[in-house]
Design a protein around this nucleic acid. Structure first.
Lengths: 89, 89
DNA sequence: TGTATATTTAGACAAATGTCTAAATACTTT
DNA sequence: AAAGTATTTAGACATTTGTCTAAATATACA
């Protein structure tokens, strides 16, 4: 839970997730979209992976990143505890 | 959005929200539940208020804090963009 | 008016965070 | 084998963050 909120607490990382929502991308593809150095993006990807929000798979010299939405349900569940009153109608 | 994730990116602040879910509390009541100084809790409450996750109202010498769940919907909406595929069944 | 209680503000400090450049690793191609 | 491409690792550095103590503010009570 901690590491999840930590991973989401950065605009760049949230944007990366939004990009990956549309489809898998290589680390280089992702880095190209930002005005940030590749090592920094690599670090962001590492944090997202630690939080299990993304997975990576090496294909040749490229590393493809994919979003993992199952973990997002954890946060959704945590957040839903706060609207459990009249939300069910 | 930024300030919202920032506010939630701390275990103490998340626990404060869980406490307030059960009902309003004074700053002192909240501080008593943690092994953290009152000024630190005051600072956490300030961040939660900046994010509009809580509201406060002074009653005599006490300040009562209440949770504001409307803002949480913002995060829920943002998160739901990631499960919009087969989730609708 | 003076003292006690509730809370915040101010300022300091160590730890965590986001960024960078330089170097290392791994794969591909010639 | 050497050179080029893709990505990460290592290390440095400034900023942000969570915490603390001491002091300030505001209300209540005697």
């Amino acid at each position: 839970m901690n590491i999840l909120f930590k991973a989401l607490n950065d605009r760049t990382r949230r944007e990366i997730l939004e990009m990956l929502k549309e489809g898998d991308l290589t680390a280089g593809d992702i880095a190209d979209k930002f005005n940030i150095s590749k090592p920094s993006i690599s670090h962001h990807l590492d944090l997202l992976r630690q939080a299990n929000l993304v997975t990576s798979s090496k294909q040749g010299q490229f590393i493809y990143y994919s979003i993992n939405t199952t973990v997002i349900d954890e946060i959704l569940t945590w957040l839903l505890q706060f609207n459990n009153h009249s939300k069910t109608k």
